[in-house]
């Protein structure tokens, strides 16, 4: 089963990391990813929510709004897609990530359908 690991963290804390702190954490995360590269799908780190734009489909034509979809105390800052045997395995992977990246939360969500980039290209 594929799981999406959605990373939530207070972006004001993350943005206050110095470059050295950020680099150090990214290096440790890189090591965790390296250990699990066989089962790892796409991974993304997102820019701060100030760069976000939201298309609200509540009306016709849809409304384009600046900012993230929701104002929350912790923001969606990235995600991993990982192929795991079970929820326990997915949780174990998230725990490993959490051990090197203090603070915040991970939401573990099973993936219903997944379209790797190659599929789109073949459909061309």
């Amino acid at each position: 089963m594929q799981y999406a690991i959605l990373c939530y963290h207070d972006e004001n804390v993350v943005c206050a990391w110095s470059k050295e702190q950020d680099d150090a954490i990214m290096a440790k995360i890189g090591a965790v990813m390296e250990r699990h590269k066989e089962k790892l799908g796409p991974v993304a780190r997102l820019l701060p929510t100030t760069t976000a734009t939201t298309l609200r489909k509540c009306q016709e034509p849809p409304l384009v709004l600046d900012g993230p979809f929701a104002e929350t105390k912790e923001q969606l800052l990235g995600f991993y897609v990982v192929d795991c045997e079970s929820l326990d395995d997915a949780l174990a992977f998230a725990r490993e990530l959490g051990a090197v990246n203090p603070g915040g939360s991970y939401e573990i969500r099973p993936v219903a359908a997944f379209f790797p980039a190659e599929v789109h290209r073949e459909r061309g």
Partner: peptide, 14 residues
């Protein structure tokens, strides 16, 4: 939560 001085960082951000 582990890591050095996480409280300091949370306080600074708040």
């Amino acid at each position: 939560m582990s890591g050095d001085d996480w409280i300091g960082r949370v306080i600074a951000a708040a």
